[in-house]
Design a protein around this nucleic acid. Structure first.
Lengths: 245, 245
DNA sequence: TTGACGGGTGTACGGCGTACACCTATGGTG
DNA sequence: CACCATAGGTGTACGCCGTACACCCGTCAA
């Protein structure tokens, strides 16, 4: 009987349970309130108990990242490389948008958990299967870089105003505030552009998903062009500075 | 006399001096050892003295970012948009590489210091002067995103092995370790590709600068194509899923 | 002469990650 | 059945962090 009471009172803790709780906590309360102490409390346990299952907080973060990366859909084998890579990347983006803390966490880590390496590896595999030379595949992976592979945030978002100056308005989320608009006229002009679907004109900012796919397709189309013409880094068409103008 | 002793003993502290010292400290010792206490000590002052010049640590970081962004070269007016943007972005990259902590700091901030906004604004100005519609300029800025505008690190770097598993070798910097290579064969294959200049073949990893410019030019070329054909988001050629395969 | 004030000081608080010693229930072995 | 090793949860404590708050002192305007 006392045994039952105990087993009911708490499931016995484990690396999995800790990681899931940590991800949930970060999702709900933000990464900045993910402390060993808070996490332990959520699990109904004393902080030091966690250290029997994860070595330290960094290892905890690595584990959390692997959880998120594990949510990326596996590749679908039938399609051509472009479709396949495109789908995979959009899936990665979806996974990361479910866990807004993840991009920064990934970038701040020293590097590459096994799950991330596995993801990257499988993307390379798709390229190679699609006829890419190792050389081109190499550069393509670099070009996709952090942002396009699904990691990393959007930097360009003029609707978030500068940190300094008056703390007047509490939260007017759309369109950048008049003061900023005045100082940065080109940003102001830009920020109301982009009438995506019909022409709603002065919009609520812009469609992140559209922008992401715009950049993604810009790269994919360029890459396709290179691949079709058998690009190789040894006979490259660089040194832009003389063949232009 | 005692006045002279004092004025000699320390220059009187100021926001500028604090910011410069903070940047120097972060450059030398890493951002993780930039604490108010360490910084104060470097300045020969008690920690709380700093708060007479910066509101708190976040504002200090904002100031540091502005210092770095301020190092980006101003635009040169004569050239065409493509040259101009290209040069500007490479200058931004140079500035950020002098301060390796900066990209992460920039991305982790809520958003956009005045200096960053000014930088973005001037890039937009160049595009507009080059004949870009506000619409296209908008999307282009998004496409450049964090990575290409000079911010954000390189994510893809297989030579840094996974965190877990044995902590055996102290620092073998080049080429990914056999164990990892075995588990991720495509990454292994890729990592030794990219014979950049002549054909040194199995290299020491790869040329970051080359990879950066590869991605940059991929985007710039694609953007140029769009601009020449008068691209607009209303008559876009999206919905990839049906015109392919 | 005075008194306001800008700027450096000292103390203290609450939160963090985590080292280390401890306790206790469990389960394999004699 | 008795034993004790061990896995896993506990409690205390240390040193770091950011920073609130009271203080104090030199300078300068009135």
């Amino acid at each position: 009987m006392p045994e039952q009471v105990q087993t009911l009172r708490r499931t016995p803790l484990s690396r999995e349970r800790i990681l899931r709780a940590a991800v949930a906590l970060a999702d709900e309360a933000g990464i900045e309130s993910l402390s060993m102490r808070n996490l332990a409390q959520d699990l109904g346990v004393v902080p030091m108990a966690l250290y029997k299952h994860v070595a330290n907080k960094d290892e905890l973060l690595d584990g959390m990242i692997d959880v998120v990366v594990g949510e990326i859909d596996p590749p679908v084998p039938g399609t051509d490389w472009k479709q396949s890579v495109r789908r995979r990347i959009l899936s990665a983006r979806r996974a990361l948008r479910r866990h807004p803390w993840a991009p920064l966490a990934i970038e701040s880590r020293t590097m590459a958990t096994p799950a991330i390496l596995a993801y990257l590896d499988s993307v390379v595999a798709t390229l190679r299967a699609g006829g890419f030379s190792t050389d081109l595949a190499h550069h393509v992976m670099h070009a996709m870089g952090s942002r396009i592979l699904g990691f990393s945030q959007e930097l360009f978002d003029p609707s978030r105003q500068a940190g300094r100056s008056g703390a007047t308005n509490p939260d007017p989320p759309a369109a950048l505030p008049a003061e900023v608009a005045a100082r940065f006229p080109h940003l102001a002009e830009i920020s109301t552009a982009a009438s995506h679907d019909g022409d709603t004109v002065v919009g609520q900012g812009c469609d992140d998903q559209f922008e992401f796919e715009f950049a993604l397709d810009l790269l994919l189309d360029g890459i396709e062009r290179l691949q079709r013409q058998g690009w190789s880094s040894s006979r490259r068409s660089h040194r832009k500075d003389q063949d232009e103008a």
